Lab assay of single mutants.
Amino acid sequence: MLEGKVKWSNSEKGFGFIEVEGQDDVFVHFSAIQGEGFKTLEEGQAVSFEIVEGNRGPQAANVTKEA
């Protein structure tokens, strides 16, 4: 699992980007967020995730919010 911080997200469009130190930003779709209820990410929020190869390149999977 990698750790990063949410660079920005748009809940209306359903995606955002995660900033990882020393690496390119990672695309995240809201379907990759683990948990119940409305899935949102806040700018600056710490997250853990895996990287998978998506249709348009690397993207985050199994995203969990850190406490």
Rank of each mutant, 00 (worst) to 15 (best):
M1L: 12
M1K: 15
M1P: 10
L2S: 06
L2K: 11
L2P: 02
L2Y: 13
L2W: 12
E3R: 15
E3G: 09
E3V: 15
E3Y: 15
G4L: 02
G4C: 05
V6I: 12
V6C: 05
V6N: 00
K7D: 01
K7C: 13
W8V: 04
W8N: 03
W8Y: 14
S9P: 02
S9L: 15
N10H: 08
S11P: 14
S11W: 12
E12W: 10
E12A: 13
E12Q: 12
E12P: 06
K13H: 07
K13P: 03
K13T: 05
G14Q: 12
G14N: 10
G16I: 05
G16Q: 01
G16N: 02
F17N: 02
F17Q: 01
I18L: 07
I18E: 00
I18K: 00
E19C: 13
E19G: 09
V20R: 07
V20K: 03
V20F: 04
V20W: 08
E21G: 08
G22C: 09
G22P: 01
G22Q: 04
G22D: 06
G22W: 05
Q23K: 11
Q23A: 10
D24W: 08
D24P: 14
D25M: 05
D25Y: 05
D25T: 03
D25A: 04
V26N: 00
V26P: 00
V28I: 08
V28K: 00
V28N: 03
H29R: 05
F30C: 08
F30L: 07
F30W: 10
S31A: 06
S31E: 07
S31Y: 05
A32C: 08
A32P: 05
I33G: 05
I33F: 07
Q34W: 08
Q34G: 08
Q34E: 11
Q34S: 11
Q34L: 14
G35Y: 05
G35E: 08
G35S: 08
E36R: 08
E36N: 11
E36G: 11
E36Y: 08
E36F: 09
E36W: 07
G37W: 08
G37N: 08
G37V: 08
F38T: 13
F38C: 15
K39Q: 14
K39F: 09
K39W: 11
K39M: 11
T40Q: 09
T40C: 15
L41K: 01
E42D: 10
E42L: 12
E42V: 13
E43F: 13
E43I: 15
G44D: 03
G44Q: 03
G44A: 04
G44I: 00
G44W: 04
G44N: 05
G44K: 03
Q45D: 15
Q45V: 10
Q45S: 08
Q45P: 00
Q45W: 10
A46G: 09
A46E: 09
V47F: 00
V47M: 02
V47I: 06
V47K: 00
S48T: 13
F49S: 01
F49E: 02
F49N: 01
E50S: 09
E50W: 10
E50P: 03
I51C: 07
I51T: 04
I51F: 03
I51D: 02
I51Q: 04
V52K: 07
V52Q: 07
V52H: 07
E53H: 13
E53D: 10
E53V: 14
G54W: 04
G54T: 13
N55L: 14
N55F: 15
N55E: 13
R56N: 10
R56G: 07
G57P: 03
G57Q: 02
P58W: 08
P58H: 07
Q59S: 05
Q59A: 06
A60I: 03
A60E: 03
A60Q: 01
A61P: 00
A61E: 06
N62K: 10
N62D: 03
V63T: 01
V63C: 03
T64C: 09
T64Q: 12
T64Y: 12
T64N: 10
K65W: 10
K65I: 15
E66N: 14
E66A: 15
E66I: 15
E66G: 14
A67N: 13
A67V: 13
